[in-house]
Design a binder for these strands. Structure first.
Length: 550
RNA sequence: GGCGACGUAGCUCAGCUGGUGAGAGCGCCCGACUCAUAAUCGGGAGGUCGACAGUUCAAAUCUGUCCGUCGCUACCA
């Protein structure tokens, strides 16, 4: 069915190992990437799905200091948590790694050196606040003081939360370090800068030519270009991070996260290739016209993936720029942005403790914030599971398998002589697979899930119309034809839902067999069909909420 | 302050290159059915598409102003 399998790089945002990730992150990036990747594999494309834990950066060192442990311990803790979450959710990585590997360091340093050699990186000196007590330079966010505009005394170096104005740290009156409370002093420090201005024209033109990208992604990116790109410092006064491969700046400087984390897509691809024993195989996904690369991220990451990373790639040369960046908006919880640190919403682990993985996957997929922020709650997740997943799909599987078990001697019946109404149902299911496929290809994952569920509803309607439980009494042969048709239709619906529901899909391998392609397969007559048990348990919302209270 | 987006049925959302009577799912009401996880199927009620003004033969869709919500603002990533 897929005459020309093509390489598809599924590049997924790197979760920051500074704390637990929440359901918003799951819905924003990891789940849609997994659904897309599973679909692409089913239609026969060669998928390479990569990501890893982002292990560097100031917040991790701050947390480590606060807890009196090393940054590496923080990173290990959360990396292990993420890996456990992916396992529980069956996120189908080809390579999930970290930015702490030797390979990543090598790839980052190679990128750095090439850009330096080509003149896209240069050195500049700036004045930055330095905390003499703890002996470190201070990121803007870690400087507090009095806002020069409104007099708010708790303003941060980047922004006053009271009046909302953007600030430079030097503007703050009475600045103090968030670490020690002492008054920091300005010291000059030298850093490498990425000359984004070099790429302004080429990126502007590239963005103009993008077709089929989500509107908000394109608007936001073009807005950056219109405002004019600024060169950005890509090194920091830190000792936690990737070493700069030239020693011009002296000690105590590292390449900063936002520059190196995006390179992870490339280094993870290389790590995967190496692990396969084919060290050059990564090129299939990064070079040439046939390869596609789709980046799954939340909207906060848009400029890194539509401006900075493409800029780096075009400066480096020879590697493909993103084919599409279907960034999602935010999942909000009762109107607020999810934030594990502020206690808004659930972490992924908490979500998995409350709901079965397929149920959680279904509920989030049905609420993906593809066009606009989407509000979600425990009640909403439970509603999706109980009223849609279990009621429409789980119950359908159960009712069909039960009837086949009872009426057809516990085995898959022969197709027999199908009537037009039977053929119509199968045609409907086959058409829904085509439609869902088109939607998945456009990364309209909510719509594709809906299409699959409509297929389930069509089978339910067919059963109500043909009434096999009645027919069985007068015309057992006709009942078997109906049930065989329904069984085949259920098999088709199962394919449409397979990218979303890996666990229950696998449970149905008996009797349907594994899903191996994006089409409905006729079942082999005679296969045993045992007495089924419900695919999905209903969620007891009252119990759930009571548990949450305690 | 600047930028981006959002505000459409009780709830969560789609529609927005302007044009057949404004949609979906769930909830609700009525009916059918009873094989199935009190599941399913059919029908129905329900919206001045945030407010105001404008452009147009025609606006939920374009423009402006206002109100409300969210996010970003380049040293969080």
């Amino acid at each position: 069915m897929n005459s020309s399998p093509s390489p598809v790089l599924v590049a997924v945002a790197w979760p920051y190992a500074s704390g637990s990730r929440h359901l918003g992150h799951l819905a924003g990036a990891y789940l849609p990437a997994d659904v897309f990747a599973r679909y692409q594999r089913l239609i026969g494309n060669r998928v390479l799905m990569v990501s890893g834990s982002d292990t560097h950066g100031t917040p991790i060192t701050v947390r480590a200091d606060a807890e009196g442990v090393t940054p590496a311990e923080i990173v290990d803790r959360y990396h292990n948590e993420f890996v456990a979450d992916w396992e529980r959710l069956a996120i189908s990585w080809d390579c999930y790694t970290t930015t702490g590997t030797e390979n990543h360091t090598a790839v980052v340093q190679d990128m750095f050196l090439r850009l330096l050699e080509k003149g896209h990186i240069d050195k500049r000196i700036s004045e930055q606040y330095y905390d003499t007590e703890v002996g470190r330079f201070l990121p803007d966010r870690y400087i507090e003081g009095t806002c020069p505009h409104c007099g708010y005394t708790e303003a941060r170096g980047d922004q006053c939360e009271d009046c909302g104005r953007t600030l430079d740290p030097e503007e703050l009156l009475d600045p103090r370090s968030k670490f020690s409370g002492s008054q920091p002093e300005l010291r000059s420090t030298e850093h490498f800068y990425l000359r984004l201005t070099d790429f302004e024209e080429v990126l502007g033109q590239w963005l103009e030519e993008r077709k089929g990208w989500r509107r908000h992604v394109l608007n936001f990116s073009k807005g950056w270009i219109e405002e004019g790109l600024q060169d950005r410092a890509i090194t920091r006064d830190l000792d936690w991070g990737i070493e700069i491969p030239v020693d011009d700046l002296g000690d105590g400087k590292r390449i900063y996260v936002w520059f190196e984390a995006v390179i992870g897509y490339l280094s993870a691809s290389k790590e995967w290739a190496e692990a396969q024993g084919t060290s050059e195989a990564w090129r299939e996904w990064w070079e040439g016209d046939k390869a596609r690369s789709v980046y799954f991220i939340g909207k906060d990451n848009i400029p890194f993936h539509t401006i900075i990373w493409p800029g780096m790639l075009s400066g480096y040369g020879g590697l493909n720029l993103p084919t599409d960046v279907p960034a999602n908006q935010y999942v909000t919880f009762k109107g607020g942005k999810a934030s594990a640190s502020r206690g808004v919403g659930l972490t992924i682990g908490e979500g998995l403790d409350l709901f079965e993985p397929d149920g959680l996957r279904y509920a989030l997929a049905a609420n993906l914030p593809e066009q606009s922020d989407t509000d979600i709650s425990v009640e909403e997740i439970a509603r999706r599971i109980n009223e849609e997943l279990a009621a429409t799909w789980g119950n359908l599987v159960n009712r069909v398998l039960s009837m086949v078990h009872k009426t057809c001697d516990g085995q898959v019946p022969e197709p027999g002589d199908r009537l037009p109404e039977d053929m119509a149902l199968l045609a409907t299911i086959d058409a829904s697979l085509v439609t869902a496929g088109q939607q998945l290809e456009k990364v309209e994952l909510r719509a594709a899930l809906r299409t699959g569920m409509d297929g389930a509803a069509a089978v339910n309607a067919y059963l109500n119309a043909t009434e096999p439980w009645k027919v069985a009494k007068e015309d057992p042969e006709r009942a078997k034809v109906i049930l065989g048709t329904a069984l085949a239709a259920v098999g088709g619906v199962r394919v449409a839902l397979a990218p979303y529901l890996p666990f229950s899909t696998e449970i149905l391998n008996d009797p349907f067999g594994p899903v191996t392609g994006w089409q409905r397969e006729e079942l082999t007559p005679g296969l045993p069909v045992g007495k089924p048990s419900p695919l999905f348990a209903k969620v007891d919302l009252g119990e759930l909420l009571a548990d949450q209270e305690s």
